[in-house]
Simulated assay, not measured.
Amino acid sequence: MRTETDFIPKSFSKTIESGTFTWSAPSNIALVKYWGKKANQIPANPSVSFTLNTCKTITTLTFQTKANPDSFSFDLLFEGKPKEDFKPKIQKFFERIAVYCPYLKQYHFTIDTRNTFPHSSGIASSASGMAALAMNIMSLEKALNPEMTEDYFNQKASFLARLGSGSACRSVKGKVVVWGNHKGITGSSDLFGVEFPTAIHSNFSNYQDTILLVDKGEKQVSSTVGHDLMHNHPYAEQRFQQAHDNLSKLKTVLENGDLETFIEIVESEALTLHAMMMTSMPYFILMKPNTLEIINAIWKFRKNHNIPVCFTLDAGANVHILYPENVRVQVLQFIQDELVGYCENAQYICDAIGKGSQLMIDN
């Protein structure tokens, strides 16, 4: 099992003056939620997520050596335009990873990034954004050290991404990713995400996630603030144990295809996440009235039609509707008939399980 020191490079066999890489990295949707963290972005409990396919960040990293390698130097563009308010987060990220990426100060970077989905609306844009940036940085490191193995590349990319945004470590590889030490998951680690280690039942092949955009505005409470409120939370220890127990149950479900139990665990996890927010001090509510309308409509539809559709939520108002591919036609008709009116500007995104980050340009 790798430790932090394994990610500190000892030397490089090559030098490189300039170049460009472009990576796409997907968002992910947690089934067992991560909420609460220790120092250095270590999760207070393990989590597991579906990697998405359509909701992604595409980031181009252009770099050029500079004369004065004593500080970080970068320009940040969002959708092709300078985005000054993003820069402090990137600066902090570079500071966190400097010991693991000592070459960063040798270059001036231009980071040009865009999302295929609304920023800061509860679709984990920080996860896909930090994962995409970490993949680009690792492409630079691999150019400096071509002997690097694919396994090391992916583990370190996940490790770096985690230091930018915890859940970003689940956006590097794999259809189903576990992050956090768990006794039942081989190779699981607090330091990086790992692909689910056993075969996943065919019921979950190309599982669908339709995201209903209830509120596309920025959340009134950031996830970082929410995580910090778990430190003195009256139900924190019970919650962390519940997450361990639910991950054990979900591992069995993903292997045996039990959709009924899958629904119970996933919906319970979503509501527990928001219960933690509502019972912290200070307390807050990220769900909107239309979030609850959608949840009630899903429960009614599932009961009346016996179709295995369920919801989950991230730290926001939007609703992820999860369902097998073989009921896609019926569920999309249900969304059109009954749910689209609860979405902001009638907008929703059709997504499905994806494969992780993809290299688009290597120059």
Score class of each variant (00 low, 15 high):
28 N>H: 05
307 I>W: 02
285 I>Q: 02
338 E>W: 07
301 F>Y: 15
240 F>C: 06
198 T>V: 10
140 L>A: 03
298 I>M: 04
357 S>I: 05
317 A>W: 09
297 A>N: 11
282 P>S: 03
4 E>F: 13
122 G>V: 10
68 N>H: 10
361 I>M: 01
230 M>V: 09
204 F>K: 02
4 E>S: 12
233 H>D: 08
58 I>V: 12
258 D>F: 06
250 L>K: 11
295 I>G: 02
62 T>C: 01
25 A>L: 07
32 V>R: 02
140 L>H: 03
145 N>L: 13
32 V>M: 03
264 E>S: 12
251 K>F: 03
300 K>Y: 05
111 I>H: 09
202 S>K: 12
69 P>Y: 08
148 M>T: 08
291 T>E: 01
304 N>S: 11
63 F>K: 05
278 M>V: 02
154 N>Y: 15
241 Q>R: 13
18 S>K: 13
350 C>L: 08
55 C>N: 12
43 P>W: 04
21 F>E: 06
262 F>V: 11
160 L>C: 00
51 T>D: 06
95 E>S: 13
285 I>T: 13
245 D>N: 12
348 Y>K: 05
31 L>V: 15
54 T>V: 15
109 F>L: 06
266 V>Q: 08
145 N>F: 13
265 I>H: 02
98 A>I: 09
91 Q>R: 12
304 N>E: 15
66 K>W: 02
219 K>H: 05
37 K>P: 00
246 N>S: 14
219 K>E: 04
139 S>P: 00
349 I>M: 03
256 N>I: 08
318 N>A: 03
250 L>N: 11
222 S>V: 05
141 E>F: 08
359 L>P: 02
156 K>V: 13
208 Q>R: 15
306 N>R: 13
33 K>P: 00
106 Q>H: 10
274 H>D: 04
241 Q>F: 13
259 L>P: 00
191 L>Y: 10
319 V>C: 11
13 S>G: 06
333 Q>G: 07
70 D>I: 04
296 N>G: 06
293 E>I: 05
80 G>M: 06
93 F>K: 01
55 C>D: 03
133 L>F: 13
95 E>A: 15
190 D>I: 02
203 N>S: 14
